[in-house]
Amino acid sequence: MLKVGLLGAGRIAGVHATAITSHPGSSLVAVSDINTAAAQKIAAQYGAEVRDTDNILQDRTIDAVLIATSTDTHSDLIERATAAGKAVLCEKPVDLSLARARACQEAVASTGCPVMIGFNRRFDPNFSALKKAVHAGEIGKPELLSITSFDPAPPPVSYIKVSGGLFRDMMIHDFDMANFIMGTAPATVTAVGSSIVDPEIGGAGDVDTAVVTLSYADGRIAVIKNSRRAVYGYDQRVELLGSDGLLQAQNMLENTVVKSTTQGVTGAKPTYFFLERYMPAYAAEWAAFVEAVDGAKPLPVTLDDGVAALAMAEAATLSVRTGAPVSIASLIG
Protein backbone atom coordinates (compact mmCIF):
# COMPACT_ATOMS: atom_id res chain seq x y z
CA MET A 1 0.00 0.00 0.00
CA LEU A 2 1.48 3.32 -1.11
CA LYS A 3 1.16 5.86 1.70
CA VAL A 4 0.71 9.37 0.32
CA GLY A 5 1.00 12.93 1.58
CA LEU A 6 -0.95 15.63 -0.26
CA LEU A 7 0.69 19.06 -0.39
CA GLY A 8 -1.97 21.64 -1.18
CA ALA A 9 -5.71 21.65 -0.53
CA GLY A 10 -7.21 23.68 -3.36
CA ARG A 11 -9.65 22.57 -6.06
CA ILE A 12 -7.20 20.39 -7.98
CA ALA A 13 -5.97 18.82 -4.72
CA GLY A 14 -9.51 17.62 -4.11
CA VAL A 15 -9.51 15.93 -7.52
CA HIS A 16 -6.24 14.19 -6.67
CA ALA A 17 -7.47 13.18 -3.22
CA THR A 18 -10.37 11.37 -4.88
CA ALA A 19 -7.97 9.55 -7.21
CA ILE A 20 -5.61 8.56 -4.37
CA THR A 21 -8.33 7.22 -2.09
CA SER A 22 -10.19 5.46 -4.90
CA HIS A 23 -7.15 3.42 -5.91
CA PRO A 24 -6.81 0.07 -4.10
CA GLY A 25 -3.03 0.41 -3.93
CA SER A 26 -2.76 3.79 -2.23
CA SER A 27 -3.98 5.60 0.87
CA LEU A 28 -4.03 9.29 1.76
CA VAL A 29 -2.24 9.73 5.08
CA ALA A 30 -1.82 13.49 5.49
CA VAL A 31 -2.71 16.84 3.95
CA SER A 32 -0.94 20.19 4.30
CA ASP A 33 -1.85 23.69 3.17
CA ILE A 34 -1.23 27.25 4.33
CA ASN A 35 -5.04 27.47 4.42
CA THR A 36 -5.65 25.24 7.43
CA ALA A 37 -9.42 25.21 6.94
CA ALA A 38 -9.02 23.89 3.37
CA ALA A 39 -6.64 21.18 4.57
CA GLN A 40 -9.03 20.20 7.34
CA LYS A 41 -11.91 19.90 4.87
CA ILE A 42 -10.04 17.48 2.59
CA ALA A 43 -8.57 15.54 5.51
CA ALA A 44 -11.99 15.07 7.09
CA GLN A 45 -13.55 14.01 3.81
CA TYR A 46 -10.91 11.37 3.07
CA GLY A 47 -9.91 10.20 6.54
CA ALA A 48 -6.44 11.80 6.58
CA GLU A 49 -4.56 13.94 9.08
CA VAL A 50 -3.71 17.63 8.79
CA ARG A 51 0.03 18.16 9.15
CA ASP A 52 2.53 20.77 8.09
CA THR A 53 4.69 20.17 5.04
CA ASP A 54 7.88 19.61 7.03
CA ASN A 55 6.20 16.86 9.04
CA ILE A 56 4.98 15.10 5.90
CA LEU A 57 8.39 15.25 4.23
CA GLN A 58 10.19 14.02 7.33
CA ASP A 59 7.82 11.10 7.93
CA ARG A 60 9.66 8.03 6.65
CA THR A 61 6.45 5.98 6.58
CA ILE A 62 5.06 8.21 3.82
CA ASP A 63 6.21 6.81 0.48
CA ALA A 64 5.10 9.53 -1.93
CA VAL A 65 3.80 13.07 -2.10
CA LEU A 66 1.44 14.70 -4.55
CA ILE A 67 2.29 18.38 -5.00
CA ALA A 68 -0.75 20.54 -5.76
CA THR A 69 0.48 23.82 -4.31
CA SER A 70 1.01 27.15 -6.10
CA THR A 71 3.37 26.93 -9.06
CA ASP A 72 6.10 29.05 -7.50
CA THR A 73 6.62 26.35 -4.84
CA HIS A 74 6.82 23.32 -7.15
CA SER A 75 10.57 23.10 -7.76
CA ASP A 76 11.46 23.62 -4.12
CA LEU A 77 9.01 20.96 -2.97
CA ILE A 78 10.12 18.48 -5.64
CA GLU A 79 13.71 18.89 -4.49
CA ARG A 80 12.85 18.61 -0.80
CA ALA A 81 10.63 15.56 -1.32
CA THR A 82 13.13 13.64 -3.43
CA ALA A 83 15.95 14.53 -1.02
CA ALA A 84 13.78 12.87 1.64
CA GLY A 85 13.53 9.75 -0.53
CA LYS A 86 9.94 10.15 -1.65
CA ALA A 87 8.35 9.54 -5.02
CA VAL A 88 6.65 12.64 -6.42
CA LEU A 89 3.68 13.43 -8.63
CA CYS A 90 3.65 17.20 -9.17
CA GLU A 91 1.05 19.30 -10.93
CA LYS A 92 2.19 21.20 -13.99
CA PRO A 93 4.22 23.29 -14.62
CA VAL A 94 7.51 22.39 -12.97
CA ASP A 95 8.15 26.07 -12.27
CA LEU A 96 7.45 29.55 -13.62
CA SER A 97 11.14 29.85 -14.53
CA LEU A 98 12.79 27.54 -17.06
CA ALA A 99 16.19 28.11 -15.44
CA ARG A 100 14.82 27.12 -12.04
CA ALA A 101 13.13 24.04 -13.53
CA ARG A 102 16.40 22.93 -15.12
CA ALA A 103 18.19 23.35 -11.79
CA CYS A 104 15.50 21.19 -10.20
CA GLN A 105 16.02 18.61 -12.94
CA GLU A 106 19.72 18.41 -12.08
CA ALA A 107 19.11 18.20 -8.34
CA VAL A 108 16.56 15.40 -8.66
CA ALA A 109 18.76 13.31 -10.98
CA SER A 110 21.18 12.54 -8.15
CA THR A 111 18.45 11.21 -5.83
CA GLY A 112 17.15 8.40 -8.04
CA CYS A 113 13.59 9.12 -6.87
CA PRO A 114 10.78 8.95 -9.44
CA VAL A 115 9.20 12.30 -10.34
CA MET A 116 6.13 12.46 -12.57
CA ILE A 117 4.60 15.70 -13.83
CA GLY A 118 0.83 15.97 -13.93
CA PHE A 119 0.00 16.17 -17.61
CA ASN A 120 -3.28 14.36 -17.11
CA ARG A 121 -4.49 14.76 -20.68
CA ARG A 122 -2.11 12.04 -21.84
CA PHE A 123 -4.35 9.67 -19.87
CA ASP A 124 -7.64 10.79 -21.39
CA PRO A 125 -9.11 7.67 -23.05
CA ASN A 126 -9.65 9.45 -26.37
CA PHE A 127 -6.23 11.08 -26.63
CA SER A 128 -4.59 7.87 -25.43
CA ALA A 129 -6.40 5.89 -28.15
CA LEU A 130 -5.29 8.42 -30.76
CA LYS A 131 -1.68 8.08 -29.61
CA LYS A 132 -1.87 4.29 -29.78
CA ALA A 133 -3.21 4.51 -33.33
CA VAL A 134 -0.31 6.77 -34.29
CA HIS A 135 2.20 4.42 -32.69
CA ALA A 136 0.64 1.47 -34.55
CA GLY A 137 1.16 3.28 -37.86
CA GLU A 138 -2.54 3.39 -38.68
CA ILE A 139 -2.27 6.71 -40.59
CA GLY A 140 1.32 6.39 -41.76
CA LYS A 141 3.71 9.20 -40.92
CA PRO A 142 2.20 12.05 -38.87
CA GLU A 143 2.50 15.28 -40.83
CA LEU A 144 0.12 17.99 -39.56
CA LEU A 145 -1.21 18.19 -36.00
CA SER A 146 -3.94 20.56 -34.83
CA ILE A 147 -4.79 21.00 -31.14
CA THR A 148 -7.75 23.11 -30.01
CA SER A 149 -8.10 24.06 -26.35
CA PHE A 150 -10.71 26.67 -25.41
CA ASP A 151 -11.87 27.36 -21.86
CA PRO A 152 -15.53 28.29 -21.30
CA ALA A 153 -14.62 31.50 -19.44
CA PRO A 154 -11.47 33.27 -18.24
CA PRO A 155 -10.25 32.89 -14.67
CA PRO A 156 -10.13 35.90 -12.32
CA VAL A 157 -7.44 38.45 -13.12
CA SER A 158 -6.05 37.85 -9.63
CA TYR A 159 -5.25 34.30 -10.78
CA ILE A 160 -3.82 35.48 -14.10
CA LYS A 161 -1.31 37.67 -12.26
CA VAL A 162 0.27 34.69 -10.47
CA SER A 163 -0.29 31.97 -13.08
CA GLY A 164 2.77 32.61 -15.22
CA GLY A 165 0.60 33.49 -18.20
CA LEU A 166 -1.45 31.58 -20.75
CA PHE A 167 1.52 29.75 -22.27
CA ARG A 168 2.87 28.44 -18.95
CA ASP A 169 -0.48 27.85 -17.30
CA MET A 170 -2.95 26.81 -20.01
CA MET A 171 -1.20 25.99 -23.27
CA ILE A 172 1.50 24.00 -21.48
CA HIS A 173 -0.93 21.06 -21.53
CA ASP A 174 -1.08 21.37 -25.31
CA PHE A 175 2.69 21.66 -25.65
CA ASP A 176 3.00 18.37 -23.79
CA MET A 177 0.22 16.84 -25.90
CA ALA A 178 2.10 17.82 -29.06
CA ASN A 179 5.28 16.19 -27.71
CA PHE A 180 3.27 13.11 -26.69
CA ILE A 181 1.69 12.67 -30.12
CA MET A 182 4.62 13.72 -32.30
CA GLY A 183 7.16 11.85 -30.21
CA THR A 184 9.63 14.71 -29.92
CA ALA A 185 9.93 18.42 -29.23
CA PRO A 186 9.80 20.88 -32.14
CA ALA A 187 12.79 22.76 -33.49
CA THR A 188 11.13 26.19 -33.41
CA VAL A 189 8.10 27.85 -31.84
CA THR A 190 6.25 30.78 -33.41
CA ALA A 191 3.45 32.45 -31.48
CA VAL A 192 0.93 35.26 -31.83
CA GLY A 193 -1.34 36.37 -29.04
CA SER A 194 -3.68 39.15 -27.99
CA SER A 195 -6.08 40.11 -25.24
CA ILE A 196 -9.53 40.41 -26.80
CA VAL A 197 -11.63 38.50 -24.27
CA ASP A 198 -10.87 40.66 -21.24
CA PRO A 199 -8.82 43.89 -21.42
CA GLU A 200 -7.84 43.42 -17.77
CA ILE A 201 -5.92 40.29 -18.77
CA GLY A 202 -3.91 42.39 -21.19
CA GLY A 203 -3.44 44.95 -18.44
CA ALA A 204 -1.96 42.20 -16.29
CA GLY A 205 0.60 41.53 -19.01
CA ASP A 206 -0.95 38.36 -20.42
CA VAL A 207 -2.88 37.25 -23.50
CA ASP A 208 -6.19 35.41 -23.59
CA THR A 209 -6.20 34.33 -27.24
CA ALA A 210 -3.22 32.73 -28.95
CA VAL A 211 -2.09 30.59 -31.85
CA VAL A 212 1.25 28.79 -31.83
CA THR A 213 2.97 27.02 -34.71
CA LEU A 214 5.48 24.28 -33.92
CA SER A 215 7.97 23.44 -36.67
CA TYR A 216 9.86 20.14 -36.53
CA ALA A 217 13.29 19.31 -37.88
CA ASP A 218 11.82 16.79 -40.34
CA GLY A 219 9.27 19.23 -41.78
CA ARG A 220 6.24 18.25 -39.70
CA ILE A 221 4.02 21.04 -38.36
CA ALA A 222 1.71 21.41 -35.36
CA VAL A 223 -0.72 24.24 -34.68
CA ILE A 224 -2.15 24.97 -31.23
CA LYS A 225 -5.12 27.30 -30.69
CA ASN A 226 -6.06 28.59 -27.23
CA SER A 227 -8.78 30.92 -26.02
CA ARG A 228 -9.95 31.78 -22.53
CA ARG A 229 -13.56 32.03 -23.76
CA ALA A 230 -15.79 29.56 -25.59
CA VAL A 231 -19.37 30.32 -24.52
CA TYR A 232 -20.63 26.87 -25.57
CA GLY A 233 -18.39 24.88 -23.21
CA TYR A 234 -14.97 23.28 -22.78
CA ASP A 235 -13.64 22.72 -26.30
CA GLN A 236 -10.88 20.07 -26.39
CA ARG A 237 -10.07 18.53 -29.75
CA VAL A 238 -7.10 16.94 -31.51
CA GLU A 239 -6.72 16.26 -35.22
CA LEU A 240 -3.75 14.57 -36.85
CA LEU A 241 -3.22 14.24 -40.60
CA GLY A 242 -0.86 11.51 -41.67
CA SER A 243 0.49 10.19 -44.94
CA ASP A 244 -2.18 7.44 -44.97
CA GLY A 245 -5.16 9.04 -43.26
CA LEU A 246 -6.62 11.24 -40.53
CA LEU A 247 -7.19 10.76 -36.79
CA GLN A 248 -9.56 12.93 -34.76
CA ALA A 249 -10.42 13.06 -31.07
CA GLN A 250 -13.62 15.04 -30.68
CA ASN A 251 -15.25 16.78 -27.73
CA MET A 252 -16.95 14.96 -24.90
CA LEU A 253 -20.60 16.05 -24.98
CA GLU A 254 -23.12 16.54 -22.18
CA ASN A 255 -25.10 13.72 -23.77
CA THR A 256 -25.26 11.83 -27.07
CA VAL A 257 -28.82 12.75 -28.03
CA VAL A 258 -29.20 14.24 -31.50
CA LYS A 259 -32.50 15.84 -32.52
CA SER A 260 -33.35 15.85 -36.22
CA THR A 261 -36.44 17.78 -37.38
CA THR A 262 -37.52 19.95 -40.29
CA GLN A 263 -35.85 22.82 -38.44
CA GLY A 264 -32.44 21.18 -38.57
CA VAL A 265 -30.19 18.80 -36.66
CA THR A 266 -29.03 19.71 -33.15
CA GLY A 267 -27.01 18.04 -30.41
CA ALA A 268 -25.61 18.67 -26.95
CA LYS A 269 -22.83 21.08 -26.02
CA PRO A 270 -19.38 19.98 -24.86
CA THR A 271 -19.02 19.33 -21.14
CA TYR A 272 -18.57 22.62 -19.29
CA PHE A 273 -15.10 22.40 -17.75
CA PHE A 274 -12.11 20.23 -16.94
CA LEU A 275 -13.66 18.64 -13.85
CA GLU A 276 -16.35 17.05 -16.00
CA ARG A 277 -14.08 16.41 -18.97
CA TYR A 278 -11.01 14.91 -17.36
CA MET A 279 -11.98 13.09 -14.16
CA PRO A 280 -11.31 9.65 -15.74
CA ALA A 281 -7.92 10.96 -16.90
CA TYR A 282 -6.92 11.98 -13.38
CA ALA A 283 -7.80 8.51 -12.08
CA ALA A 284 -5.79 6.85 -14.89
CA GLU A 285 -2.87 9.21 -14.26
CA TRP A 286 -2.72 8.23 -10.59
CA ALA A 287 -2.99 4.54 -11.42
CA ALA A 288 -0.03 4.89 -13.79
CA PHE A 289 1.98 6.65 -11.08
CA VAL A 290 1.28 3.89 -8.54
CA GLU A 291 2.32 1.24 -11.07
CA ALA A 292 5.56 3.11 -11.78
CA VAL A 293 6.43 3.57 -8.11
CA ASP A 294 5.73 -0.12 -7.51
CA GLY A 295 8.14 -0.93 -10.33
CA ALA A 296 5.57 -2.56 -12.58
CA LYS A 297 6.02 -0.03 -15.39
CA PRO A 298 8.24 2.95 -16.20
CA LEU A 299 7.09 6.50 -15.46
CA PRO A 300 4.83 7.56 -18.34
CA VAL A 301 5.53 11.28 -17.86
CA THR A 302 8.87 12.45 -16.49
CA LEU A 303 10.42 15.59 -15.09
CA ASP A 304 12.24 15.88 -18.42
CA ASP A 305 8.84 16.04 -20.15
CA GLY A 306 7.83 18.83 -17.81
CA VAL A 307 10.97 20.83 -18.56
CA ALA A 308 10.48 20.30 -22.32
CA ALA A 309 6.93 21.67 -22.19
CA LEU A 310 8.07 24.62 -20.08
CA ALA A 311 10.79 25.40 -22.62
CA MET A 312 8.12 25.54 -25.33
CA ALA A 313 6.04 27.88 -23.16
CA GLU A 314 9.09 30.08 -22.67
CA ALA A 315 9.71 30.07 -26.41
CA ALA A 316 6.10 31.05 -27.14
CA THR A 317 6.29 33.89 -24.63
CA LEU A 318 9.46 35.20 -26.30
CA SER A 319 7.98 34.79 -29.77
CA VAL A 320 4.91 36.89 -28.91
CA ARG A 321 7.21 39.58 -27.55
CA THR A 322 9.62 39.63 -30.50
CA GLY A 323 7.37 38.60 -33.37
CA ALA A 324 9.95 36.02 -34.48
CA PRO A 325 10.33 32.23 -34.28
CA VAL A 326 12.28 30.98 -31.27
CA SER A 327 14.58 27.97 -31.39
CA ILE A 328 14.13 25.44 -28.59
CA ALA A 329 17.85 24.67 -28.76
CA SER A 330 18.59 28.29 -27.92
CA LEU A 331 16.78 27.80 -24.61
CA ILE A 332 17.83 24.34 -23.50
CA GLY A 333 20.73 23.44 -25.80
Rank of each mutant, 00 (worst) to 15 (best):
P199H: 04
P199T: 04
I201Q: 06
I201T: 10
I201F: 06
G205Q: 04
D206Q: 03
D208G: 05
D208T: 04
T209Q: 11
T209N: 12
A210V: 00
A210Y: 02
A210T: 00
V211P: 06
V212Y: 06
T213W: 08
L214Q: 06
S215E: 15
S215Q: 13
A222Y: 10
A222F: 09
I224Y: 11
K225S: 14
N226A: 08
S227F: 00
A230W: 09
A230S: 14
G233F: 05
Y234I: 02
D235F: 15
V238Y: 01
E239H: 07
E239A: 14
E239G: 09
E239C: 05
E239V: 15
L240F: 00
L241A: 11
L241T: 12
L241C: 04
L241M: 07
G242Y: 04
D244N: 14
L247H: 04
Q250N: 13
N251Q: 13
M252D: 07
M252G: 11
N255S: 15
N255D: 15
N255R: 05
T256C: 07
V257N: 09
V257Y: 01
V258Q: 11
T261H: 08
T262R: 14
G264E: 09
G267P: 00
G267Y: 11
A268H: 07
A268P: 04
A268Q: 02
K269R: 15
